[in-house]
Amino acid sequence: MQTPKINLITFFFVSAIIGVATATFADIHPGDIIYNDGAVKQSLSGKAGDIESGAEIMNKGAGNCIACHQVTALSHLPFHGEIGPSLDGTADRWSEAELRGIVANAKIWFPETIMPAFYKTTGFIRLGDAYTGKAHEGNVEPLLTAQQIEDVVAFLMTLKEE
């Protein structure tokens, strides 16, 4: 009776490994990102970013990039902030890997920056449950998903002046 049981466990175990390997590319966990001087080479979701979705994230939700940055390409949207630099021509100044790193966690490159880390889940002081003011419980989600980071990076890569 012992043998089939072990086989069964082995079967599930092996299937699980195969399952992970054959499943569509899993997001890179925020804790597993490899920053190279603040830049991140690999797509966090394994997929290309969606420019249109990126443009939307620039304006709302946990992205809301234009709360601090000015973007002429988004000048139809009201109230661009002045805290961060203008993002016009950002793709001329930064590579895709650098932009991915900055959006994911700008503090790797600029330790003192006010810019929040959008793909980070640890190292917070008194982490709250979103905007409720209450303590956070359970798993911590980054401000943006891996795919949303890719979408924003894809949009930023369209901001060329040259």
Binding site: I125, R126, G128, Y131, G133, A135
Partner: peptide, 12 residues
């Protein structure tokens, strides 16, 4: 104060 700290997504 409470509103400001809450808006950092913190436990106030």
């Amino acid at each position: 104060f409470r509103g400001c700290i809450r808006d950092t997504r913190a436990e106030t």
